[in-house]
């Protein structure tokens, strides 16, 4: 696992360890024990965080969000990638691996 690469939608991500998460109204706030910083994930950010309890591919996150929110796919993809890169830069998530690519012979 690594926490310092740029994220793309065909990769799996999972919540990092050593974070304490709390609800604040409809938003989600978090304390990173590792770096001592507090974060506000916001409402949709909190929803994305919940989706990452188990390893999940970025494009699955986008699909789930598109089923619940009124947003175009391109916009949703850009925003999810941007948000996950923010989390990754703060070492709050772990990028598990590239998705396996199948080929037919």
């Amino acid at each position: 696992m690594t926490t310092n690469q740029k994220f793309s939608l065909n990769q799996e991500v999972v919540q990092g360890k050593n974070n304490i998460v709390s609800e604040m109204g409809e938003e989600k706030v978090m304390l990173s024990i590792e770096n001592g910083k507090y974060y506000n994930l916001g409402e949709i950010g909190g929803e994305i965080w919940d989706l990452m309890q188990e390893p999940i591919k970025g494009d699955q996150v986008v699909s789930i969000l598109m089923s619940k929110y009124d947003v175009e796919q391109t916009e949703c993809e850009e925003h999810v990638i941007s948000f996950l890169n923010q989390l990754n830069e703060e070492s709050l998530i772990e990028i598990v691996a590239n998705a396996m690519q199948w080929s037919t012979n």
Binding site: V29, K37, Y38, Y39, N40, L41, G42, E43, I44, G45, I48, L65, K68, Y69, D70, V71, E75, C76, H79, V80, S82, F83, Q86, L87, E90, L92
Partner: peptide, 15 residues
């Protein structure tokens, strides 16, 4: 009915 979308942002709180 789908909810309104807002760009998710990570806010670092000054605590």
């Amino acid at each position: 009915m789908k909810k309104n979308w807002q760009k998710p942002e990570l806010e670092v709180l000054d605590v």
